[in-house]
Design a protein around this nucleic acid. Structure first.
Length: 431
RNA sequence: UCCUCGAUAGCUCAGCGGUAGAGCAUCCGGCUGUUAACCGGAGGGUCGUAGGUUCGAAUCCUACUCGGGGAGCCA
């Protein structure tokens, strides 16, 4: 039996006869010659079958082959300038594993609704495969970066007894006799973990029951949430920009083929370099006012505001020190200006919006308790969290990186729904 | 929740008051270098649902359903 080779590695087998297991992506035939575009998950290769060189049965089978039929094909690997990848197979034998009939996604344009209904098949398409491959490499790069800096991965719960931040709507469910909610952030648990491990990060899904219907929103999305003990806001921001720069460099180095398939202008990514520009909330408001926006100090930014600020820079830009009243209860006030908190949002270039939100956390027990009262949060439900400030509280900081928005930015996509294998969108739970 | 756009063949769309159309896909035939191949032929439709206007509605009006984009909220 011939050696089975991944399409990705065919170039190392020039001149040899090998087998490829895969699916028929497309076919073109011309009477006495058939061109079979075959994919195996690692790549795409063209097999050329000439009638005079194979048995009549094999040629007939190849001629009748339909899109997405599963197959095993053997052939001699040849270097050929006419092939996109530079390599093609001169087919010798063909075994059809299953003949497919009426594959829904044809090599033609399709609408979003149709494609989303067929997402389980759509992910076979070259473009979708490339996006999800880049997603996987981004995750790999984030982990490598954090692991190299002695972060420990700690997994927070997904089912939680109450809101972490109390700002957005949560998915409600039953936990036997109790009420439970799907997590919107693992952060408070990561603060506990940081006091146990020093530097930690979580990577998992989060859920927001908001009726958001835009290109930047998913109902279920994945976040990386690092949390660091004995770390100031300033140190956290430096880690954030190093992390993003590392991820960009990793993807540029390892996903050249995939970035080309999705049509990304890599020049813009190649220019990303630390340190990233920073502006204060105060400066951002002044800029917006100068540009004719009706915004006053103390107002929160809307999406158009963020887009306008981000458009001023080629790099991701940090917006620091928002008004205390706008932000979550746990953020530490600036000691010099208690009306603002030690926080920063990182806005991606090209209109992709906020990809990181981070802050230094309140480490003072009395102040945190006062915040609970101001925000009318149930102190009993959070007594474990308040414990963290009673038993060896330290200055600590952390942030949350939104994976899908990061993938959308790096891939240059129109919509985050393509950045996750099976997106959960408003009113869309299938497949 | 609000604003806005849309729903016609398996898919993408045209038709916008007078007998339902095209390209692709499918099936049949042709073609030895195709890259969304090409050429010839065939089959394929309660025009989202319900009501209304009209001699006549895919086309105009109303409601509803489903979907796209956006706001708010956020990563």
């Amino acid at each position: 039996m011939l050696e089975t080779v991944s399409v990705r590695h065919l170039g190392q087998h020039i001149g040899n006869e090998v087998a490829v297991n895969g699916w028929l992506h497309a076919k073109r035939s011309s009477g006495k010659i058939v061109f079979l575009q075959i994919r195996d998950g690692t790549g795409f290769v063209q097999a050329v079958m000439v009638r005079s060189e194979v048995s009549a049965e094999t040629f007939a089978e190849a001629s009748a082959l339909t899109q997405e039929s599963s197959l095993r094909i053997t052939g001699i690997v040849k270097a050929d300038d006419r092939a996109h990848s530079g390599v093609e197979m001169q087919a010798t034998t063909l075994m059809v594993v299953q003949a497919t009939h009426d594959y829904p996604i044809t090599p033609k344009e399709h609408g979003v609704d149709f494609l989303m209904d067929h997402r389980h098949l759509w992910i076979r398409a070259p473009r979708q495969r490339s996006i999800l491959k880049i997603r996987a490499e981004i995750i790999r790069a984030v982990r490598a970066f954090l692991d190299a800096r002695e972060f420990t991965q700690v997994d927070p719960p997904i089912l939680t007894p109450s809101a972490c931040e109390g700002t957005t709507n949560l998915f409600h469910t039953q936990y036997f006799e109790e009420d439970a909610y799907l997590t919107q952030s693992g952060q408070l648990y990561m603060e506990a973990a940081a006091m146990a491990f020093g530097r930690v990060y979580s990577f998992g899904p989060t859920f927001r029951a908001e009726k958001s219907k835009t290109r930047r929103h998913l109902i279920e999305f994945w976040m990386i949430e690092p949390e660091m003990a004995f770390t100031t806001h300033e140190e956290s921001v430096q880690i954030q920009e190093e992390l993003i720069a590392h991820v960009i460099a990793h993807v540029l180095r390892h996903c050249e083929q995939e970035l080309r398939t999705v049509g990304r202008d890599t020049e813009k990514l190649a220019r990303i370099a630390t340190p990233f520009p920073r502006i204060s909330y105060d400066e951002a408001v002044a800029i917006l006012q100068r540009n004719g926006h009706e915004i006053t100090w103390g107002d929160d930014f809307g999406a158009p505001h963020e887009t306008e600020i981000a458009a001023l820079y080629e790099q991701p830009v940090f917006v620091e020190r928002y008004p205390t009243a706008l932000k979550a209860f746990y953020m530490k006030p600036d000691p010099d200006r208690p009306e603002v908190v030690l926080c920063a949002d990182l806005l991606a270039p090209e209109g992709y919006g906020e990809i990181i939100g981070g802050s230094q956390r309140i480490d003072d027990a009395d102040l945190l308790f006062a915040r609970f009262e101001e925000h009318q949060l149930p102190a009993d439900a959070y007594s474990w969290y308040l414990d963290l400030r009673k038993y060896g509280s330290v200055p600590h900081s952390g942030f949350g990186l939104g994976l899908e928005r990061t993938v959308a930015w790096i891939c240059g996509l129109e919509h985050v729904r393509e950045t996750i294998p099976f997106p959960r969108l408003l009113y869309r739970l299938y497949p």
